[in-house]
Each structure stands twice: as C-alpha cells, then as structure tokens.
Design a protein around this nucleic acid. Structure first.
Lengths: 352, 352
DNA sequence: TCTTAGCACTCGACATAACCGAGTGCTAAC
DNA sequence: GTTAGCACTCGGTTATGTCGAGTGCTAAGA
C-alpha cells in the first residue's frame, strides 16, 4: 500500500511525465529527453510543453540534468515519488514464468531452516536479478526441543541446543569429571534431566531457568549457555547473487561496486539493515541516500519481513542500483516473503 | 618444494631478467621495459643486452609484448617458471605482523567447526588481500557420536546425526506412529538403541549398518539417512573477501570481475576446484589457463589441504589475479593451512 | 662470440581542435 | 496555458599532432 507522499502534489500531466522519465530511464539507462517522453507516451502535447513541465520537476528536485542540455535522470526523490505514488492499489502481478519458478522452488521440503534460507536467497537473486539477502531470526528466540551434553576427546563437554525448527547451537563447557568411566552415566542423567526440564523454553531464557538449581555443574552449564546466547544474539545472514550487482549495466564504476560488495559482505552491516526492516513489519524501500549505510548510497534496498510463528521473525530482501524496476522487484520480494511464510509458519496455513 | 621445470632451462642472466620482470610487473602493473630491468637490478650489463635476452624470453613464451614497442608482461608460462624455479628451498617467511595476525586468530577456541572455517576464510582473505575459500570435508566422512530422533509438529520425525567434531546433519523421515502418546516412548528407545549401536560409524556407512535390522522403522530410517548422506556428499564451502578481487588494481574490467565472482559463488565449481587440490595432498598452484574453470582463466589459484585427522581432509586457498605476489601468497596459504591443521587435528600435536 | 652504443622506428597516451547532434531554455504567437 | 521556432550548450566522436618510452637492428668493440 503506497504511503502518502510527503512531497508537493503534482498535477496529472506532470505526474505522467515523471513516471515516463522513471520508466524510460530504468529501461535504457540513458538520460531521457523531452522528445522521448512525448513519443513513448501518448500525452497529447508537444515536446515544448513537456520541457516546461520538466523544468518544474527539476526545481522540485525530482529529476536532474547531468549537464546542460542533456536529458533528465530521476533523483532519489524522484524514485521515491514514483514508488509512493504508484497509481493502483497493488503492485503488479509477477509474470507467469517467475511465479512458477518461485512456486517450484518451495515445492519440495527442506530438511532444515538453513537450507531453506540459503535456497531462498539464491531464488530471490535470480528472480530479481539483484543481490539478495536473507536473515535467520536470532537463534535466541528459538525454543528448546532437546539439550545434549557430549564428552569431547579433550575432556571438556560440548553443549548442543536443539530447537524445534531444527536449528542447532553449540558451545563448550568445562565440567569437573564426576566419574572416569566412559560413557559417563552422570552426563547422560544430567542431559536427560535438563532436556526434560527445559523443553519449550526459549534459548535466551535457558540460563536463568537452569540457575535455579544451585550446584556447581548446573552453574557452569548455565554460564556457558549464557555466553553462547550472547555470542549468537546477532542474526545469521545468507547471501545470493553477489555477482548480479557487477553487471556492466548496473554500476559502471568498479570502485562503487567494490564498496557495495564489501558492505554486503559484512554480516554486521547487513544484519543491522535487515533489523530495521524487521521492526517495520512491512515491505520497506530505501532509495539512495535513504539507505542507512554510507557505501550503499548509490543503491536501493527492498526488504520484507517473514514470520516463523511463535514471535520469531526474519527479513529478506534485495540490494541493487537505484536504477531498478521497483514495481517488479517489490512484487517479487513480497511474493517470495509470502511463500517463505507459508513454508515456515504452519499456524498461518489456514489463511493461505 | 619447487617442481622440476618442464620448460627449457635458462642461463643465469636470462633467469634473473625474467625474475626481475615478474617482480616489477607484480609491483607496478605496468609493462616492464629493458631500462627498468637494468636499473632496479644490478646486472652489470646494458639495456641493449637485456633487450636481446628479452627477445629470447619472448620467443620461448615466457613474456609478451602488449603491442610493438611496449614493455614486456609475464605470460602464464612466465609466472609458472617463476614459481617452479624459486631459487631457495623454502618460500619466504611471513612478515612478523602477519604471523601475529594468524597466530592471534587461532588463539581462542571455536565452539564448532563451521565457525572455525568461516573465520579462517576471513583471515586468509585479509592476509593475502585476495578472495579466500575454505572447504569443509564432506560430512559423510565424519563419525557418529550420537543420533537423535525428534518428533516434529507435523507428525514426521527429524533425524539428527551428530559427529564428534560437532558437525550436525539433519533430515526428515516419515514413520508410522507406534503410539499416540507424546512424548513417544518408543522413539526414545529407538534413539537410544541406534545411538549406542552406531557410535563411531562413519556417516556414509550408517545406512548399511542400520539395515541389518529388518523391521520397518529401521528400514525407513536407513533409507532416509542414505538420502541425507547422498545429498551432503559435496563439500561445504566458505568464502571470504569477495570484495578484494574488485580492487581497481586487480581486474580493470568489470565483465571479467563479474565472471570470476560469479564462478566463485557457485559452490559446485569451487568445490570441484578444491577437490583437485585435496587429492594432490600438497600446496597447489594453478596459473591462468591452467585453472580448470573457464571463467577463471585470468586468475591464479593457490590451494593447500588441511587435515582433521581420521582420514578427513579439507582444502583452503585463495583466488586472485595472475598478477600476484606468489611467494608471499603461497607462504600465507601454507601458514594458515598449518595453523588450521594444528587447531583441528589433535593427533598431530606432538610434531608441532 | 658476446656485448654495447647509437639510431631510426613504432605505437600508445595524451592534448587539441573541429564537428555533430540531442536536448535545452526562451520568446513570441496562438 | 500551449506551441512552434530558434539560438545555444555541451558531451561524444573523430581527426590530427606531438611526445616519449621502448623497441629492433647494425656496426663497432672486447
């Protein structure tokens, strides 16, 4: 649903001109002249009239002239207007072929969450021809299905936290050995006790719950789990289609491309970006300077949250140049988010 | 250890000239002229003599002239000679700072193999300023420490294979329910039985071992595990420093860079490449057209295997432009492989 | 036979100039 | 408010010239 625009309203023809410029520039990558606008859009006015309108649009900051007497190029604000003032209530439907690709990708079941998210990032990058990122919800939100304590060859203990989603986190703890036998029956007992007692507790609450038993082993395990959870509080990020952003028709210049790829590579940066979108709760579009990452000021990012149910959310989205087919890309991101939702959140199945 | 060169032997001065050209070209990126060779290397001969030598080196295919009367640039064969005929018995020591970085990175323990390998790829890319790849050994080689069967909300069963390294694989199997109670006591029993019986068995041999019991549940689990193992027979690949390859002083041209990044992104391609190196069992250098990947013919790759003990190996390495500081990069790859070895293979600790 | 100085030659890099044409803003008429 | 006409601007392209690094060749020297 388009948000109300904050920019001054445009009369009908100026709006049409601006839309035409955006469409044409996205298509060709060349500055758009007044003649091109009149030709490709049956506005029944002459090029001179369009020129007057374009002058006004430039004053308003929607378009920009790279140099005197070149055509016009949309500014970030121009794209923003284009997106916010999309005329119909819905983004366009995806072409049949892409729909099929998406449906096909989600047809066969995944054996675990990681595999599903990695595939999704791949899929999304292919459909949008941009770079895709998908975040897994921070594992601390998951609920324990089983806890395992495993003896390591170095005498220490591996802790496995297994979630209902199949997510597994591991850590290491040092426990004074209670017996020299192998396998250690006490360890099995402890595993069983903790596993039973903690079933259904969210990872982030495990340490607190364990600590209610005051003996040394419980204390040690609690503090090890607390540390694990602190380490994993960040979202895990999956990337797909990094090479897409290097197409010669995207960023002409290698330095910009390097900056963008470098930023996408840093999990902390992407994770932060995705987190903003998650909390927004709806599809979110940042254009150019709106992107809260310095190196990505020549990019547009389109993110949408998805739901795993049980208060766990993640985000997925794409990163591309500001010169992007927004309607199509937004539709694609929404469609993939919806499909992923259906796959992962069984509680939503009824309203499919 | 340098391999014997297959190319014709060079007399002492021509060898020095070729080395000088390689060094100089790697440093500056500009074609190297006869004067530059005489100036920067106190060969006590004039530029004209060098020119004669360069003519011979060109006839032999070691160097190449981009155009009439430009300087010379090493060919793939030239780099190959340079690497194969490294004069001393050992590659150079790494500078103090880099040694410290590597040692520091491996100082604190990792909680699991994935984390260790991901960090290693990051580290390697930083030290070499190239793109690094690290493969995990295919999980089918791991030995089972514990097997878990977990009831899913949809009625099916999640199978978890937990290895001694902390590697966890999961799959899904459909079992006819033996009881409606929750938790299913039979499932716990089955878990316990399989876990005990299969401890220490390699993943790839699990299905066969289970099948010796002929009842329906065992059969179903065996075939599910067989399928899991088949799906995971490929190595898992970790990448680091993809953006490094986009530095303007590496590949000038965006299309080449895109091809390389696109190839690095495909796990199957990288995995295959790494597999070649693994089976070689030593540090391996492919230069330019030697790289068995079409899109990487303008790259050099340097790989080295590492060992997890118990017949499990992986590979790590870097991918960069053929114009690369080979001695330094080879040293770095070897050093990181050695450090990773020490970290992961306890059986090697004694000969540290 | 190998090395060297000298020299004419080649060709990319760079600068300059001319031209073309798409696209503009302005003005005056409709 | 719209339009036709027109002078003007400026990047892209092409043509031309100059510069200089680097070459190969030749003839003399060791």
């Amino acid at each position: 649903m388009p948000r109300p625009t904050t920019a001054p309203a445009l009369d009908k023809r100026k709006a049409a001109v601006l839309r035409a410029i955006v469409r044409e520039y996205v298509r060709t990558g060349q500055p758009v002249g007044s003649k091109a606008v009149t030709e490709r859009n049956r506005l029944q006015v002459s090029a001179a009239t369009i020129r007057n309108d374009m002058g006004v649009l430039e004053d308003l900051g929607f378009i920009h002239q790279p140099f005197t007497s070149a055509g016009r190029v949309p500014t970030d604000l121009g794209y923003r207007w284009f997106v916010d003032n999309w005329p119909s209530a819905h983004w366009p439907d995806l072409p049949r072929r892409e729909r099929d690709v998406i449906d096909g990708a989600f047809r066969n079941p995944f054996s675990d969450l990681e595999e599903a998210l990695a595939s999704t990032s791949q899929l999304l990058s292919e459909v949008t021809d941009a770079t895709a990122v998908v975040s897994a919800p921070p594992s601390i939100k998951h609920r324990l299905q089983r806890l395992e304590l495993l003896a390591r060859s170095d005498g220490r203990i591996t802790i496995l936290l297994i979630a209902d989603t199949g997510v597994v986190e591991q850590g290491i703890v040092e426990l004074e050995p209670s017996a020299e036998t192998e396998p250690d029956p006490d360890l099995d007992l402890l595993t069983r006790e903790l596993s039973d007692r903690l079933k259904g507790v969210a990872f982030e609450d495990l340490a607190m719950t364990i600590e209610s038993r005051p003996d040394g082993r419980h204390k040690a395990i609690a503090s090890a789990i607390a540390k694990m959870v602190a380490d994993r509080s960040q979202q895990r990020v999956f990337r797909g289609g990094t090479a897409n952003i290097l197409s010669p028709d995207k960023f002409g210049d290698l330095a910009t491309a390097q900056g963008v790829v470098g930023a996408i590579e840093r999990p902390s940066i992407v994770s932060e970006l995705l987190e903003v979108a998650r909390s927004a709760g709806t599809v979110l579009v940042f254009i150019g300077h709106e992107v809260p990452v310095e190196k990505m000021h020549s990019c547009a990012v389109i993110f949408a949250p998805y739901d795993l149910g049980d208060d766990r959310q993640g985000t997925l989205g794409v990163i591309g140049p500001t010169r992007m087919d927004y309607p199509h890309t937004i539709s694609a991101v929404e469609a993939v988010a919806r499909s992923l939702n259906r796959l992962l959140d069984p509680s939503e199945e009824k309203n499919g």
